[in-house]
Amino acid sequence: MASRCCRCAGRADAQTNRRPPSTLRHRFGCPQGSCPMKTATAVLRHEHEAIVLALRILAEIDRHAIAHDPVERQDLQALVDFLAEFADTCHHGKEEQLLFPRLAQTGNPKVQHTVERLLPEHVRGRHWIGKMRQALQPLRPEAFHEAARAYAQLLLTHIEQENTVLFPMAEQLLSTEELIALSREFDTFERQVMGPERHEALHDLLSRLQTRYSI
């Protein structure tokens, strides 16, 4: 039997209703550089899983904050920092700097239209991250709630569009070899913008918060 990238294997497990491994590091992909078979779209899909988990944790803490229950402001700060660094700088950076330009080279008008529709949503996401930051200094629960809810709604719709529309188009327009090569460029980009081991550190942060808030 041919070997499978652990990212692809994880997706196959989900399709056959087998419970995925419990640790974030297994759930969200291979350690950097360890899997030569990973494709760019598989990497981005797995990063979406981490972002969705962060949004679920954010919603849970926000629920307590808006009810004026005691909350750890540093946990909210850590999540906003995660979304700024991982979801925007790293994940959206890979798309804006590498995936989208590569898709533009195909000259396909449908994919270009899709990219032109998705790009402004990255900008709006940065706006709401800024609003969340402002609402933390000092903590203003109502203002934070408004920004967090708007950001989550935006990003969840955005992720669905990428997973169901953009990535399938990319997989039709680019060969598997091209997508694997692009994922290697992702690795280089990530090391440049985040530094070594930062990816794992951020997922460890999510794991701790997931346990703390029983998500």
Rank of each mutant, 00 (worst) to 15 (best):
L154F: 09
G93N: 12
W128P: 01
L139N: 06
H122T: 13
L174V: 06
L119R: 15
H92D: 05
E96P: 04
P168H: 05
F82D: 01
L119Q: 13
A150V: 05
V115F: 00
L103I: 02
A150N: 14
S175L: 12
I159N: 03
E146G: 00
P120W: 04
V80A: 01
T164W: 06
V80T: 10
L103S: 01
E162Y: 10
M169T: 04
A84N: 09
A143T: 01
H92N: 10
E142L: 11
L156Y: 10
H158L: 08
H92A: 07
A87L: 06
G130D: 09
L119G: 01
N163Q: 14
W128D: 04
N163T: 05
E178N: 07
R140Q: 14
A87H: 07
H158K: 06
A148I: 03
N108R: 04
M169W: 09
L98C: 07
N108W: 03
L154I: 12
D88M: 06
R124N: 07
A84F: 03
C90F: 05
F82V: 05
G130L: 10
P138I: 07
R126L: 08
S175F: 14
M169V: 04
T114E: 13
N163S: 10
P120E: 10
A147T: 08
T114K: 06
A150S: 15
R126M: 09
E171C: 04
P101Y: 09
G93F: 12
P168K: 05
D81L: 11
T89Q: 15
A87V: 07
C90S: 15
H127T: 09
A148N: 07
A170D: 05
E85P: 02
M132W: 02
G125R: 01
R102F: 01
G93R: 13
P101D: 08
A78D: 15
R133W: 03
L166G: 00
E121K: 12
G93E: 12
L103T: 00
V80P: 01
V80H: 00
L156W: 11
L83N: 02
V165Q: 13
E177N: 10
R149W: 08
D88C: 08
T176I: 12
A152S: 15
M132C: 12
E160D: 13
L166M: 11
H127C: 10
V80N: 00
T89Y: 07
H145I: 00
Q97V: 07
Q153H: 11
M132F: 04
P141Y: 00
